[in-house]
């Protein structure tokens, strides 16, 4: 979003009748308007602050040297956790597993979901509206139901003993798909069809039009969908826990640790994840700003 575009917006936020504030009554009115205008923003910022409090605590606790295994209060500043992030047994293995599953699930879900989004937005066929509702359903189902039905399927199919990497991956691709479809669909639907028509008018064939016009325009949506998929996959606990067999993903490790006493290194991982994702989002934002300016 460019600065020039938003500056008038901000001005128009202010009350229109601002000019006539001479009498005391109007002064109060003006003050009331100011309050009404900024009250919402104030509350909004407070809510944002509320959303960040737990994150700040995670960051702070990553520098904590806990007094004992079950003590949760901030005891002493240390860099030890950051120097030895893999000290707790099995933690880094679980992070590695979660990253592997996250990458694979993202790759497959983004590819399949993008194709489906194209089908739903760009093609008219019988059963299209059914397919639309169908993609929405997994998002509208509680995780425990999806997880338990997958488990029921695996058990009924005789795979109860084979639960593990593959079953986790199947589940993750399944629940990421809907989110990919919805994200890419939104981007596609917002695309100006005249851009593609212009390319065709300039004698580009369908293939060239797709790769030189459509795809680059949809790409930010695909990227956003991939980022969303990865974070959904990396973060999932309920569905994974039911279908993981002996494998331990990072959320499952945290869950186990919550019963035994939490190693401070968990907060290091949490902080790193947070910063990485933030960095990616900000880089993306910078990129779009630069492009819009160019």
């Amino acid at each position: 979003m460019s600065r020039a575009g938003t500056a008038p917006d901000r001005r128009s936020d202010r009350p229109v009748r601002q000019g006539g504030g001479l009498g005391g009554g109007l002064g109060i009115q003006r003050w009331g308007h100011w309050l009404a205008n900024h009250l919402v923003l104030g509350i909004g910022l407070l809510v944002l602050l509320y959303m960040f409090v737990p994150i700040l605590i995670v960051v702070a606790m990553s520098f904590n040297q806990p007094a004992s295994r079950n003590s949760y209060s901030f005891n002493e500043f240390t860099l030890r956790n950051w120097a030895n992030p893999c000290e707790p047994l099995g933690m880094c293995d679980s992070v590695l597993l979660s990253v592997q599953i996250g990458l694979l699930a993202t790759l497959v879900a983004t590819a399949l979901g993008t194709l489906m989004a194209f089908a739903l937005v760009r093609h008219r066929f019988r059963g299209r509206s059914v397919a639309n509702v169908f993609t929405f359903l997994p998002m509208a189902s509680p995780e425990i139901v999806m997880g338990s039905s997958l488990l029921a399927l695996f058990v009924a199919g005789g795979f109860a003993g084979a639960l593990g990497f593959v079953t986790i991956l199947i589940a993750h691709i399944m629940f990421c798909l809907s989110f990919v479809v919805v994200t890419v669909k939104a981007r596609l639907a917002g695309l100006d069809p005249r851009l593609e028509q212009a390319a065709m008018d300039l004698y580009a064939n369908e293939w060239q039009t797709f790769w030189r016009v459509t795809f680059p325009l949809v790409f930010p949506g695909i990227l956003a969908a991939a980022l969303l998929s990865f974070s959904l996959s990396f973060d999932d606990f309920i569905i994974t826990n039911l279908n993981a067999g002996q494998e331990v993903t990072f959320p499952m490790y945290v869950w186990g640790a919550a019963q035994r006493g939490i190693p401070p290194q968990i907060n290091v991982i949490g902080t790193v994840m947070f910063l990485t994702a933030l960095l990616l989002v900000l880089l993306g934002e910078l990129n779009t700003r630069r492009r819009e300016r160019a």
Binding site: L48, P54, Y72, S231, D235, L278, V281
Partner: peptide
């Protein structure tokens, strides 16, 4: 971005953070 950012720290870690708060 700030609305989605807390999302990127694991659901479980955030909940444990509330345990502390």
């Amino acid at each position: 971005v700030a609305v989605i950012a807390p999302f990127f720290t694991s659901f479980l870690i955030r909940t444990l953070s509330w345990q502390l708060i």
